[in-house]
Design a protein around this nucleic acid. Structure first.
Lengths: 209, 209, 209, 209
DNA sequence: TATGAATGAGCTTTCATTCAT
DNA sequence: TATGAATGAAAGCTCATTCAT
């Protein structure tokens, strides 16, 4: 496929990928300029198209690379085995937040790739997303102990509240710490504490006491 | 500032604004073409730049217009006077959903304006958002009856959970009903019911019984 | 259609058309450069595409223009009314030769347009050719006096020989005088004489004496 | 000159030449891509330029090769010894037609090489044409029996008519049968008959009866 | 006030040719 | 001898913006 590119030295590959991620993250697919990329990567116009055939091919390759990289990092954090879905999802949220900040441009690029691209690109990106993420995604929902929920609470509704809230909370933190990533990386303990506080409130309403 | 434009007849203003909103909503800032806009609006290129100086000025003016219009419509829905913040926020969410669907292109444009524009545009849009929305935003949080919360629950944390969840839920509905707006408009009762179900679960964990 | 272009001053139109004809005649459709054309015509890149939408549109416009121009000149030479098809075709050949040399680049361009263009261009050119030429083409074959042919000669075969020969002869003269057009223009009498000599030979074989 | 190439095995040479002829015949000089050629020939870009120095050198080599090949095949058809120039030229025309169809891509390439190339290429091709063809051309005009021509007919003029007509007729058949080469190959008898019919008409006008 | 012709930098992509290996 | 990665000029076309009218 893209063996021309993949046979390059790690150094060169990294330089090029970083230039691409930077540009695509900053400007989105359409407004990114292959001119800018080759200038930043210090390569010639011709060779970029020799590696990737065209802009679309380049973009999708970089998307794949980012997904793969981030999923690999996910898998380095094994989730605690517990029936408590609150704890598992809360942990996962913190991990996601951590990874997002450790790979800020990749995350930005991936978000833009879905929210911000012409139709034919978006659909390809989405299929790649589901393919890879379904392959790698850890089994969050296995062995949930539904007996913990108090009667009168639909566990599915409860879990949906939980997930939507956690996602929204994560987005809020990402926005708040934009440009101040160092602050966030130094405050994970405080962060985990905050998450726990929210979890306690929600658990109280959903679990039987 | 833009008095040249504002002195036009309402009809002409509307025609031009609609052309802009349509194009910007569809294509985002960068990929929108002033050419397309003038063609759709039936005016000349020269006069567009006479009114708005440049593309950026035009875009920000249209953003302002959309924010103002939607906020005005918000204010047509007086919230029930009650100490129950759950009810107030839930109502507000449903209204927001309704308005989003009643002003679909404006909403789409505003989302794109934030998620989809070059850096210098985005920051200007964000400052306008907070400026205008703080000016118009109704006083949701006045007269909250904090005594309803059970001891051990920080009301501010609780309200934050509530707001984040409601925003996320709203976004989810918007995505789900994309292209099927009619379905949503015919199901507001079912929608309200669903919101209430979620509210019951959350209230149970936060209020004292 | 191309009213933007057509409303220009005659001077400017001529300058642009000449630049196009020169480039297209010299290099054919594919290898002609719009860059070269605008440089030679002294106009900007943008305005060329404003006039003609794209390279194909430009090319077909110029083809039309050349066909129209040459056909108009044809019509200035009324053919002698006679039943002698030999005389009529011979005259027409000399006229054609004259026009070809008076409009050398146009002729070259038109030949290239048919023999030398990508498929989709060629077919459009061909349909234009037949459209226009059928509209303007003088009625060569009306009132041919078939009784002049001697028995044993199929008049249709005879006319075919005549036409193929005349066309080939014309092509030969065009090639021979390439670059020495002045010489040819000064020798039309000698030329007509030569044609007559050939005609005498052919007539002798085909007409009854 | 091109001894590097010529020392290759016959197999390899053929593979490379066929790839070139195919590409050049299909697309003409300028639009042919050396990339496509090396891919089809299964060789590297470097070696192609090592063999032929540059695209022009390659093209002219292939032109030479095609001319040489076709001329060699010509020489396999010994012309009937006769004083009748009509019969000799007519036979030659049919042979030419046959060879054109038996070596379709070579013929197509050679036509394009003359009608379809940038100026500096065309002139080189033309000089090669005359060089080689004069070297190989069989002695058509030896031993013409000029006494057969009736008085009043300049034999040179007559022969010129004949040759131009035959060439034009051949071209017409080639065009007519483009894409339907099989049809033509199965109809050589009918073809020869048609040629004879034309010859009879012309002879009648030129020979003394 | 209003027009739209005109500009030229910018876009993605292809190409013949070179050269380190 | 043979490879194919690398180059950068050139292609057709679009764009926001200006300015003479």
């Amino acid at each position: 496929m893209y063996s021309n590119f993949e046979n390059l030295s790690e150094d060169k590959k990294r330089t090029i990928l970083e230039a691409c991620i930077h540009e695509f993250a900053e400007k989105g697919y359409e407004n990114s300029s292959t001119n800018t990329i080759v200038k930043e990567a210090g390569i010639s116009k011709g060779i970029l198209f020799h590696y990737f055939k065209n802009k679309k091919g380049l973009f999708l390759y970089v998307v794949d690379y980012c997904i793969r990289t981030i999923v690999e990092e996910y898998n380095k954090y094994p989730l605690v085995e517990t029936g408590d879905i609150f704890q598992r999802l809360s942990e996962l949220s913190v991990i996601k937040l951590k990874l997002t900040h450790a790979n800020l441009e990749m995350s930005k690029m991936l978000m833009g790739a879905i929210g911000n691209s012409p139709e034919d690109i978006r659909s390809e990106v989405e299929s790649r997303y589901s393919e890879l993420s379904s392959e790698y995604m850890p089994a969050i929902f296995q062995k949930v102990d539904y007996s913990k929920f108090r009667s009168g609470v639909n566990p599915l509704k409860a879990i949906e509240i939980l997930m939507l809230f956690l996602e929204a909370l994560g987005d809020k933190y990402i926005k708040n710490y934009q440009g101040k990533e160092q602050d966030l990386l130094q405050n994970y303990d405080k962060l985990t504490e905050e998450y726990n506080e929210y979890m306690e409130i929600l658990k109280h309403g959903m679990y039987s006491s």
